[in-house]
Each structure stands twice: as C-alpha cells, then as structure tokens.
Design a protein around this nucleic acid. Structure first.
Lengths: 192, 192
DNA sequence: TCCATGTTGGTCCAGTCAGTCCAACATAGT
DNA sequence: ACTATGTTGGACTGACTGGACCAACATGGA
C-alpha cells in the first residue's frame, strides 16, 4: 500500500462529530466539514464516503465515546439511586464542558428522524434502545420494575438535552436530574 | 382596500406550521411551503415576510393552539397528580393523532437553537419558560416545591417529544408520563 | 365607469448544496 | 532509481436554495 493517509482519521471524525452535534445534520454542509477538518473533499469522500455515511460514523463514535462513560458510571453502585445519579452526572458534566456542544447528538438526531435516510434513522433508534438496555441491566438486580424505570431514565436524559439547548442553567438541569433520581429511589425502595 | 386576500391566512399558517413541525426549519424549503399551501411566493412574502418570519408565526400559532389545551387540562384539578396527568394526557393525545407530526415543534426548535436567528431562538426559550410558569402556577397552590416540579414536568414533556420522534410506542410514552406523575405525587404528598 | 390600490403566481437571480472528477503528488516494493 | 498504487485538494457540475421582482389581475371607492 503506497501513499499513506496524511491525517488522523479518528481526530477528523471527532471534529466532524462535534460539528454535527453543534449544528445538526441538515445545517452542516460539506463546506463546514472541509473547513473544520482542513481536509479536501477528495480525502473525505475517499475515506468516509458521502455526508450520510460521515454522519453514521459520527453517531457511532459518539455512542462509543459516551457509552463507555455511562457504563462506568452505572456499574458497581450499591443502590439504584446512586447508579442513576452517577449516570446523570455523566450528562451534566458533558453539558457543563464548554469545549463540547450542548445537548446530545442522539437526541438531536432523533428529532430530525423524519428527514434522515432510513439507515441513519434506524441507527438512532437502535442506539437509544441500546442505551435503555444498558440502564435496565444496571437496575435489574435491584427492582422488578427495571424496564419501566430504565425507559424513564433514558427519557429524562433526552429531556436534559432539550432543556440545555433551550438555554436552561446547569442548576436547573441538575434539579431536573435530582427529581428523577428521587423518583427512582421511591420506586425501588417502596415497590421493589 | 381593494384586492382582498384570496386565501385563509390562518389555514395557510396551520399548513406551514405542520410542515415546520414535521421537517424542522432547515429541511423545510420555500418550495415545500408553496406546494403545501398552494400559494405563490408573492403571496407568501407579501403576507408573512420571509422564511424566518413565517417560522416565528408558526411557533406562535403552535404555542397558542396547544397552550390553551394545556391551560384547560391543568385547571380545576383536585390534586397536583391529577393536574399533571391531565397535562401529559394532552401531549399523549396529540402524539397519538395520526394527522399531526410527531414530537413537539418547540422541542424540535430548541434542538435547532444554535442555527436559528436570534429572534427565533429567544422566542423558543420564552415559550418554554412560559410553559414552565403555566405548570408552576397550577402547582403553586399545592406545594412549596412548585418551581422545581414544574421544571421537571416541562422537561418530561420534552422527553416525550424526543422519544416519540425516536419511534417509541404510545405505551412506552404513557409509561414515562406515569412515572413522572408518581414522582409529582410522592413529592407533593410527602414534603408538601 | 374608471382608476388607485392591493393581490397573485410565475420568472429570474446569485449563492450554496452534495457529489464527481482528475492532475499532481507521495510512498513502498522491487 | 523506477514504477505501480493509493492520497490529496481543488476545480467543476447540475440541482436546489431563499429571495427579489413584476406584469396581469381583482376589487372597492369616486
């Protein structure tokens, strides 16, 4: 194989992911991507394919990056409430990081689902379902209502993304998360 | 005034609102709007102004239409839990209506905030804050924690919009709402 | 009746879009 | 050193975008 890649593929993907995360699929042009990565169109098309494929790779990279963090937060907690609080802390910390766009790429993409191609729409649903299963697995040991609670927790996560985008403060977002944690606590200590 | 309007402005606005609600701001072209309303560009520009103004009018019409429904649902309920359940029932019924797009125009627009013009971005925040105040007013009589709970309820409302767009079933959405209602119930009967 | 005023729908325009193509280049194996 | 192979970034294309414009039209008042 002669002629090696002149750029770091993962680094470029991070830049593209951030761009989609900030502006959404429709409002991110190839010109934005070219400008953010410093690459030419030939390199982008040769390495990643078209815009839709570039988006799919961004979704996967996002899910992988933050999926690990969620996984770590959920595991090894003594109570369901502490696990869910740690889960929300991941989101709250990410939202508070000024180097990253607001909200959540998955939530953003779910909203755009009707105008995404079938492949990307399905991918978004699958990633969200995977997230639900992750939370449910962490709750299963504590309560028989894990399925319902897991869906509620994942939904609240999406809510935080919307509220952040709408301009809510860090305190407000933490408050929403804490109400949700108390709901999980009440559910698991009373009925479970 | 000679030369009267040949079309029903509110009817046209409903069609435009539905289009934005389905596809979002960026993915809705003037061509879509012309085609959906059957009007010419001259009529649209003469009556509403440009695309951004058309979007603003759609936001306001949306907020007005469903704001009345939320208001009615919240008022005159004997307990906070019943008020919030009725509130969520408005969203759930709207989502279940096959004639309307999924999710919520406000939530959709909040997600697109970074790429909206200042006027529309501020409008979205204002409408969401108005919604929060509406819920808080309904809860104020019952509990001292109304501010925090109202924010939680409005957030859950946004969560339902995201989950619907992601393909969640009516049962799943109802389940999320019921967990939230129980959280309100526990908060207001225990601490209040 | 006739004209001033507002409406209508189509045409046109400059800019932007995603995607294709290719000539110049850099490398690895021989 | 030479060449086959893969990479690169810019030039180009046809389609589409939001918006400006306007000639034909419809109406209400004088």
């Amino acid at each position: 194989m002669a002629g090696r890649k002149q750029f770091d593929v993962d680094r470029a993907l991070d830049q593209v992911m951030t761009l989609f995360w900030q502006r959404g699929y429709a409002e991110t042009s190839l010109e934005h991507i070219v400008s953010a990565t410093g690459l030419g169109k030939g390199s982008l098309y040769g390495t990643f394919g078209g815009k839709a494929e570039l988006f799919r790779r961004s979704l996967d990279r996002y899910a992988d990056t933050y999926g690990r963090q969620y996984e770590a937060a959920l595991s090894g907690r003594p109570t369901p409430a502490l696990a869910i609080q740690a889960f929300f802390d991941v989101v709250l910390a990410r939202i508070a990081d000024p180097r990253l766009p607001g909200g959540c790429l998955i939530a953003l993409s779910a909203m755009a689902a009707p105008t995404l191609d079938d492949g990307n729409r399905d991918r978004v649903s699958a990633l969200l379902e995977h997230q639900r299963q992750r939370v449910q697995a962490a709750l299963d040991a504590f309560t028989p209502d894990a399925a319902e609670l897991a869906l509620f927790v994942v939904s609240t996560n999406q809510a935080l993304a919307v509220m952040d985008r709408a301009g809510a403060s860090a305190e407000q977002l933490a408050s929403v998360a804490s109400v949700a944690v108390r709901a999980v606590e009440a559910s698991t200590s009373a009925a479970g």
